[in-house]
Simulated assay, not measured.
Amino acid sequence: MARRALITGAAVAGVAPLFAKSRSEVWTFDSLKRIGGLTPRVIGAPQLIDGPLGKAVLFDGVRDQLLIPRHPLAGTPRFTFEALFRPDGGAFEQRWLHLESGDGSAATAKYGQRMLFEIRTEGSEWWLDTFLLGPGYRAPLIDPSKRWPVGRWHHVAQSFDGRTYSAFVNGVEQANAELAFVPQAPGVASVGMRMNAVSPFMGAVRAAAFTRGQALSPRNYVLKIP
């Protein structure tokens, strides 16, 4: 069942129990009709596939995109943003999970509040690029020396603990930076490419999790790869 869940225990395959104090929202990409309890706008022809973690949505790296009317981390001063995904190669730059304040239009995008999961690919490898943009801050985290294989399922995360912004792949820190973060305004999400329909993603997305008010350590992540 696709859902937007506030969880304090196991919810779906690939989701681990949380401490009782944590409140996390999980989006499971096992439907094209309802994701996170919301109705996505479907662009192109993304496909539902079966995989080792359960159903997922496959994007073609050309025109497939899902637009979801919610920014789950709006208003929170600390956060953890996770996803389970499988990159399959494709173009060098792919911006595949985008949270943005406003309604996603060019008129509201000019205010520049967003959170992004991106990747860079080269041959059979990829590396993570995360990005925060908001009032008084612009923070990319990327280390091209830390590479991972395409065609496999991976866990990615970015978090802010009140002082440090950090990025992780499979529980391994990729980069960090001190940041004067300001919570973002309500908005929308794009999956499969950037909000303005550039840098499409080739691969699959199984789930995303959004924990408000806390930077989780890797051992306490909501999403897991068994």
Score class of each variant (00 low, 15 high):
116 L>D: 15
121 T>E: 05
124 S>L: 08
101 S>V: 00
120 R>I: 00
126 W>A: 03
107 A>E: 14
111 Y>E: 13
119 I>P: 01
102 G>V: 03
120 R>T: 00
104 G>S: 07
86 R>G: 01
103 D>A: 11
113 Q>C: 11
123 G>H: 09
93 E>G: 04
112 G>W: 04
129 D>Y: 11
118 E>T: 06
111 Y>R: 11
92 F>G: 05
85 F>I: 13
117 F>V: 05
129 D>R: 09
102 G>D: 05
89 G>Q: 02
131 F>Q: 14
124 S>W: 12
121 T>R: 13
129 D>V: 06
86 R>M: 11
100 E>S: 10
116 L>M: 09
112 G>P: 00
87 P>H: 01
102 G>K: 00
98 H>V: 04
129 D>P: 01
106 A>T: 08
86 R>W: 04
123 G>C: 10
127 W>F: 08
111 Y>W: 14
128 L>A: 05
98 H>K: 04
85 F>Y: 13
115 M>D: 03
108 T>F: 02
94 Q>K: 09
107 A>L: 15
99 L>F: 15
124 S>Y: 09
125 E>G: 01
110 K>E: 07
93 E>M: 13
129 D>Q: 08
114 R>F: 12
111 Y>P: 00
99 L>G: 03
122 E>M: 14
121 T>D: 05
87 P>T: 05
131 F>L: 13
94 Q>D: 08
99 L>R: 06
118 E>Q: 11
101 S>Q: 06
93 E>L: 11
112 G>L: 13
113 Q>Y: 08
95 R>S: 10
130 T>S: 10
124 S>N: 13
123 G>P: 05
112 G>A: 15
110 K>Y: 04
119 I>W: 02
118 E>W: 01
127 W>H: 15
129 D>F: 10
104 G>W: 00
125 E>S: 09
99 L>W: 15
122 E>S: 15
110 K>I: 15
130 T>I: 07
92 F>A: 07
102 G>C: 12
122 E>A: 14
129 D>W: 12
100 E>N: 04
87 P>F: 03
116 L>F: 11
112 G>E: 14
110 K>D: 00
106 A>M: 05
94 Q>M: 13
84 L>G: 02
113 Q>R: 12
98 H>C: 08
106 A>S: 12
119 I>R: 07
128 L>V: 02
115 M>Y: 07
119 I>K: 01
130 T>G: 03
130 T>Y: 06
96 W>I: 04
122 E>Q: 15
120 R>S: 09
93 E>F: 14
101 S>M: 02
113 Q>K: 08
90 G>W: 06
116 L>Y: 07
86 R>N: 09
125 E>W: 07
125 E>N: 09
106 A>E: 13
117 F>K: 03
108 T>D: 15
99 L>M: 14
104 G>Q: 09
128 L>Y: 02
109 A>V: 04
130 T>P: 04
107 A>M: 06
103 D>C: 12
124 S>P: 06
104 G>E: 01
111 Y>Q: 03
99 L>D: 02
112 G>S: 13
114 R>C: 09
121 T>N: 14
126 W>G: 03
113 Q>E: 15
99 L>Y: 14
121 T>G: 05
128 L>W: 02
107 A>D: 13
130 T>L: 08
94 Q>A: 03
131 F>N: 12
121 T>I: 04
87 P>G: 04
131 F>V: 02
87 P>N: 03
122 E>Y: 15
109 A>G: 08
116 L>Q: 11
120 R>C: 08
127 W>A: 01
102 G>A: 06
91 A>P: 00
107 A>C: 03
84 L>F: 05
104 G>C: 04
111 Y>T: 13
